[in-house]
Design a protein around this nucleic acid. Sequence first.
DNA 1: TTGTCATAATGTATGACAAATGAAATGCGG
DNA 2: CCGCATTTCATTTGTCATACATTATGACAA
Lengths: 248, 248
Amino acid sequence: MFQTSNALRRSVHSQVTDRVGSSIVRGEIGVGETLPPEMQICEMMDVSRTVVREAIRTLTGKGLIESRPKSGTRVRPPEQWNQLDPDVLRWHLETAEIDRYLAKLFQLRSAVEPAAAALAAIHAGEHDIARIRAGCDGMDAAATNEDFVAADIAFHQAIYFATRNEFFWPIAQMFEITLRQSFTIAAPGSHRPRALREHRAVLDAIVAGDAEAAREATVVLLAHSADDLVRIRGREFETPAARDKRKR
Amino acid sequence: MFQTSNALRRSVHSQVTDRVGSSIVRGEIGVGETLPPEMQICEMMDVSRTVVREAIRTLTGKGLIESRPKSGTRVRPPEQWNQLDPDVLRWHLETAEIDRYLAKLFQLRSAVEPAAAALAAIHAGEHDIARIRAGCDGMDAAATNEDFVAADIAFHQAIYFATRNEFFWPIAQMFEITLRQSFTIAAPGSHRPRALREHRAVLDAIVAGDAEAAREATVVLLAHSADDLVRIRGREFETPAARDKRKR
DNA sequence: TTGTCATAATGTATGACAAATGAAATGCGG
DNA sequence: CCGCATTTCATTTGTCATACATTATGACAA
């Protein structure tokens, strides 16, 4: 391991994009403020203006900043960021408040994944089902915890792709980044048998083409997953339903 | 109206980004194929290499392409595109198959918005509620159909922001683009009273802090909205539940 | 208040060189 | 003469430097 994952080898403008983007997301620059003029950034990071401009272009494309002649390049309000962009997400995860972000992502997942399973039950083709089944089998055969997590991720991703709805795909992409973190911490080996059973239930419902069954099975799966997360990492991972139940 | 919306006045690299991105999304270049060398694009569009490179950088940031020295710039598989990116979405909507894309977006909306309303019921602050209420009032007071749609959009957006979960925000952003199209076509004036009543029901549930009620009210609202879309634009807008019901 | 202008920042153009890599050319042993 | 490894070459992207164009801000003056 000579490199920080895949960050060191990359091109110069990627590194600049990372440094600037990261400092924006972690709030070092503040909404509405302007970042230093391009030439000044060039000097600070010892790169050419070409590189800085291409980095700025990338960040503009992600909605983080907007620039005008004379007035400079300003940080846009976070409501306009592409929060689902993999890079933006990664910069978020570098923050100290990882648990809060994982919890919020789990909220989104809880909203989307049952519907994704229902759509998968309707639209999945042979290839899709093969991929989902491969995920199940991989979880079954997994020797190490790492293999188990990888298969688990593949399973869930396959469901998103099986919706045949491309707007679900980037959400799956995103989960790949985060599930890897939350699962490795939150999946105690003792729960594997139950997890496996619940995954197979989702698979069966999709194979049968039963949308409602697939939705319900996914809800159950996520609820138990949330229970684990609550137990291990705290109440932030609670679903609204569970919260209501506790409050009463 | 001297310009094609806001496309003509913009910077040169934005225009190049649009042209290239659009032609990729509409499949003129094909997955895995390489687009022409930078210099060639420069000649074709009569711009400098600086501009072309910045456009390519933007598209790379959206996941559409990846480039390597010597081998050129290739189109990545659509699974890796940031399909929720506003630009990518816009390029999609230029396609002939608008209905299919609107239908898919509605599927995502049906999945996300009930959960968003539930979260809003828990987390909304005074400011959030004021915005949601303003949306309702705006719908009530709307003279023209355009005003009505604008208020409607503001209402739904406010709910997404009220979740206090930034990962829901870009989805709201996206809907702003598309709701404007589907609503203007699919909202017959005769249904306004019912729509207004249902919107107020969501608002009331959020104000009361009742997550489950907010979810249910949103489900109802969306179901009726889907009915309208099905009636006007076709079966593609059907929800899975409605589809099951019809099949039985 | 209004209009004009200087100024500072981004936007665009051009030319040169570095680095990487795929493919052709080459050399060697069989 | 053929097959395989090696080397060389050429093409394309990546980076740098410089110059000029464009635009909007803020100050100044009528």
